[in-house]
Design a protein around this nucleic acid. Structure first.
Length: 619
RNA sequence: GCACCCGUAGCUCAAUGGAUAGAGCAUCGGUCUUCGGAACCGAGGGUUGCAGGUUCGAGUCCUGCCGGGUGUACCA
């Protein structure tokens, strides 16, 4: 077998089968059985998928039904024509059984040959990539995620972008793409105007000296209330109410401080440079805890020198013009709101920065794709920015995929946006602490876990399980919907949770300790996995679908496809392990089953790693 | 008003236009003199918000309602 499905002995069974179906469909067109335009073949071939039920075989193709009307034939007859050519496709017979007759309205069901399955899984056991082939055509992909406003403390709202973006980046990188991660910090906007105003009017020097982060956070929260001047907020906060009464023009003054910063005012610039390390230290501590890293951290301030030219160029090209004192790009009719790129007071907006950033990334990184992992409330903004960028026509923009990877809101168990009882947003660090604390209470309670675990080990396990639980709960959810944050649910030891998956790894790999097995030697000696029992076969097939799961994650940027598959794999393994002896088996059968255990443990571990989730030896 | 997203088991959630809509929790039952029982096997539980339409086939696509969320000119 050559091409898509094969790479240094790595076989993606689904890709290989799709390639064979492509051969069959092209033959169908060439023989005038039915005219299938080349452009449609890719879509039809993608209809080759895993079957819903093992009784239908391993994979099925459903395109015969779709083609029947056009061919003027019965779907079953079209299916027969496809099958006739499929079995002659190069390499088909090496991997797959000949399909039987079409089933139902015209399903073509295919089963992997047992000896081929055994050979492929044996190679996966010996493979660092666990049998997963890299993509044939690597792309350069920029993943823009996390992007907090550095002047505010990170809160629960930042977790989704950070965790989802990190997982997508890891997965694309493992797939073989050139991935560039960039944390587009909000370090130049109105929130700094608030801190600057607060610093000048109501700072507490002693507090800043003792804990600069806390003092800046206090100033931000206080000034935001003063500037917003919402009666109900002021009623609950006498300090803010007093300030608001003394400074009725605070909102305008905050914007003026922002504008002065942008214009290069020496005092504001100096304060900004003084505050930035404080803010960066704060968020970097959280990233360290989450074990999230970035290739670049090019915040809004980095692009600030390019903004004037961006506006000028858009105006010069006739795309942007003055309106009500501001400058906007008019994308729709006269009544549709324009995309504002310069305020009436001269300050730039985040749309301006986003456009300049696209131009800079295209010029410096030449990406094929840019993913923006940002919450769904900004979908309209990105639609406008992407459209404006395309019309702007900067070099490379016609060939780049600009994708808004949107996600829903984190809700509390009452179904409303996640807040503390006092109504404040929940700080991210406090959230992580609580997760770890609760994890500590549930880990180490099993028999094996209890045995000989030091206090330090327990802390490490609690950290891994607690942080993992928070990440996994987020990643296992369909990202487009809102999700309900519940420590009780995410720390359950059964079901599709991090703790269950981490336990599965520890349990699988505990065998090797118990049996005194040298795993390296086991892998080198693995020449033929035996799949005599249906449960062994099912596990082997599932293991080989790792690459398919990762492919499906990439297609729609949906990490929950991977969590669901890992959970299925863990279930397959449990079924296998429950009914078949491993350490108690003998000879070649024992080695073969140990090899399946070894591969299962490594795939689970790697899968969790690609989600940014750690594992432990014992728990 | 307009735009976008979401309504799936009692609860929390899955399901590239494919076969009988699946998991976990909860409920009920079964297995095994534990290779890590934090296990395995099974049962009950559904008019996928409502009504039409397209299709060989619709939870999924289209139209209209109902209900919820978000956004909607100078925050990001």
């Amino acid at each position: 077998m050559s091409g898509a499905g094969d790479q240094a002995g790595r076989v993606n069974l689904r890709s290989a089968l799709r390639q064979a179906f492509r051969f069959a469909l092209e033959g169908l067109a060439a023989d005038d059985v039915v005219a299938v335009p080349e452009a449609e073949i890719a879509g039809l071939v993608e209809q080759v998928r895993e079957t819903a039920d093992a009784k239908f075989g391993d994979y099925s193709g459903t395109m015969a039904m779709a083609l029947a009307k056009r061919a003027g034939k019965k779907p079953r007859d079209v299916a027969l024509e496809i099958i006739k050519r499929l079995i002659t496709a190069p390499g088909y017979a090496d991997l797959f059984e000949p399909p039987g007759d079409p089933v139902g309205p015209g399903f073509i069901n295919v089963r992997v040959k047992d000896d081929a399955l055994a050979a492929v899984v044996s190679r996966a056991v010996a493979d660092d990539r666990l049998g997963v082939a890299a993509v044939e055509h690597p792309q350069t992909v920029v993943v823009d995620f996390s992007s907090p406003n550095v002047a505010k403390p990170m809160h629960v709202g930042h977790i989704r972008s950070t965790v989802i973006g990190d997982a997508i980046a890891r997965i694309l990188r493992f797939r073989g793409h050139r991935v560039i991660t960039d944390n587009h910090l909000g370090d130049w906007g109105t929130q700094f105007g608030m801190i600057l105003w607060g610093w000048k009017h109501c700072r507490n020097d002693a507090a800043f000296g003792a804990d600069p982060t806390a003092e800046l956070g206090r100033l931000y929260r206080l000034v935001r209330k003063v500037a917003d001047a919402k009666p109900e907020e002021l009623a609950a906060d006498p300090t803010a109410a007093t300030l608001a009464a003394e400074h009725p023009d605070a909102a305008r003054e905050v914007l003026a401080e922002t504008a002065k910063l942008h214009e290069g005012d020496a005092e504001n610039r100096a304060l900004w440079e003084r505050f930035m390390p404080v803010c960066r230290g704060e968020i970097d501590r959280i990233y360290a805890r989450l074990q999230v890293t970035f290739d670049h951290t090019l915040g809004e301030s980095f692009f600030q020198p390019m903004l004037a030219a961006t506006v000028d160029d858009l105006v010069a090209k006739g795309l942007a013009r003055e309106s009500r004192g501001a400058i906007g790009v008019f994308l729709g009719g006269e009544d549709d709101p324009p995309l504002l790129i310069r305020k009436a007071d001269g300050a730039f907006l985040y749309a301006t920065t986003d456009l300049a950033t696209i131009q800079w990334r295209l010029e410096n990184w030449e990406p094929d794709r840019i993913l923006y992992v940002v919450d769904h409330r900004q979908s309209q903004h990105f639609e406008q920015v992407f459209e404006a960028a395309r019309r702007w026509g900067v070099d490379g923009v016609a060939d780049v995929d600009l994708v808004h990877v949107a996600f829903g809101t984190v809700l509390g168990e009452d179904g409303k946006p996640f807040k503390t009882r006092a109504g404040d947003t929940v700080g991210l660090e406090a959230l992580l602490d609580e997760g770890v604390e609760r994890a500590a209470a549930v880990v180490g309670s099993g028999e094996e876990g209890r045995a000989g675990m030091s206090a330090e080990d327990r802390r490490h396990v609690a950290e891994t399980v607690g942080i993992g639980a928070i990440k996994y709960a987020d990643l296992s959810q369909n990202r487009t919907t809102d999700y309900v944050f519940s420590f009780d649910k995410m720390l359950q030891l059964t079901g599709n949770t991090a703790a269950y998956m981490q336990y599965a790894v520890a349990r699988v790999e505990g065998i090797f300790t118990k049996g005194g097995i040298d795993r390296g030697q086991l892998r080198r000696a693995c020449h033929g996995v035996l799949l005599s029992d249906p449960k062994e076969r099912a596990l082997a097939l599932e293991l080989l679908r790792f690459g398919e799961a990762l492919e499906d994650v990439e297609a729609d940027s949906r990490p929950n496809v991977l969590t669901a598959w890992l959970y299925d794999l863990a279930g397959c393994y449990s079924t296998f392990y429950d009914s078949l002896s491993v350490l108690k088996a003998e000879g070649a059968e024992r080695d073969s089953r140990l090899a399946l255990c070894d591969l299962t443990g490594r795939v689970l571990r790697r899968g969790l790693d690609l989600l940014g989730i750690g594992t432990v030896e014992k728990m």
